[in-house]
């Protein structure tokens, strides 16, 4: 693995750990997973048009984030149904227009040399996500406990939710190379869920989630290379192992 690959993987994992904590606490684990699927048709169209697949993925993910944002104010049940239908449909359409090696790679990650552009995009996006979470941590906490209280504390909830969802979409885009559209949602959710189980306060949770996400990503990528397997499944298997251990350790 080249130093850029490792640096990018670590930056991606830090972002995933942080974003995941709020996704888990906001109880959006399911929509998080579904949202990542929407990247697939974007990748398919980009490949067909000979554009960088990442550009297609980011465009579709931002569209998905906007859709979730627009639906959030409606009834909860309707939102989940719509997300389930739209994002599964995206997976279906995406699978039809992408084929062979490209499809497998898009689904579970891995492959290809990193371009300079990709490294630059990755590092900038990861920095944006991490700074957003650290800067808006307080507003996110208050909004989590009570949106009404957040409102009276001067938080612009619509803006905060939109930015959070865009950062979430960006994090998924960051991880596509390593985990693919099927598994990236898991790297956001599993370390955070494990951390939630092990922590007594917010900073502890953020720290533990980042440590687990980074450790499983680095170790998983190395292990995948050694075993000649796709990176995504190995990373997620490791993360799930951490989750189980945490549950056994502290029921």
């Amino acid at each position: 693995m080249s130093p850029e690959t490792v640096a990018l993987a670590v930056a991606m994992a830090v972002a995933a750990g942080l974003v995941g904590c709020f996704a888990v606490m906001r109880r959006m684990a399911l929509s998080a997973d579904a949202l990542s699927h929407v990247a697939l048709p974007g990748i398919g169209v980009a490949l067909a048009l000979h554009v960088h697949p990442l550009a297609g993925a980011v465009a579709m993910l931002f569209f998905g984030a906007l859709l979730v944002w627009a639906l959030e104010d409606r009834a909860r049940l309707a939102t989940e149904t719509i997300i389930g239908v739209v994002f599964s449909a995206a997976l279906a359409v995406g699978s039809m227009i992408t084929s062979g090696e490209d499809l497998i790679e898009a689904l579970v990650g891995g492959g290809g040399a990193l371009s300079r552009l990709e490294v630059a995009f990755g590092l900038i996006a990861a920095t944006a996500v991490v700074s957003f979470i650290l800067k808006e941590k307080h507003a996110l906490v208050v909004a989590l406990v009570s949106p009404d209280i957040a409102r009276t504390a001067g938080v612009d909830l619509r803006r905060l939710n939109l930015l959070y969802l865009l950062m979430f979409a960006l994090t998924i885009a960051l991880g596509l190379r390593y985990l693919g559209v099927l598994l990236m949602g898991s790297l956001i959710i599993i370390p955070a869920a494990t951390a939630k189980h092990l922590s007594n306060n917010l900073n502890q949770m953020l720290t533990v989630a980042v440590v687990i996400a980074v450790a499983t990503t680095v170790v998983g990528s190395g292990l995948a290379l050694w075993l000649h397997r796709a990176t995504g499944p190995v990373i997620v298997a490791l993360a799930a192992g951490c989750f189980l251990l945490a549950f056994l350790h502290r029921p």
Binding site: M25, H138, V141, V145, S199, N200, N201, L202
Partner: peptide, 10 residues
């Protein structure tokens, strides 16, 4: 895992 301190600090 949000404590009263986390909440007040926020």
């Amino acid at each position: 895992p949000i404590t009263g301190f986390d909440f007040l600090r926020a």
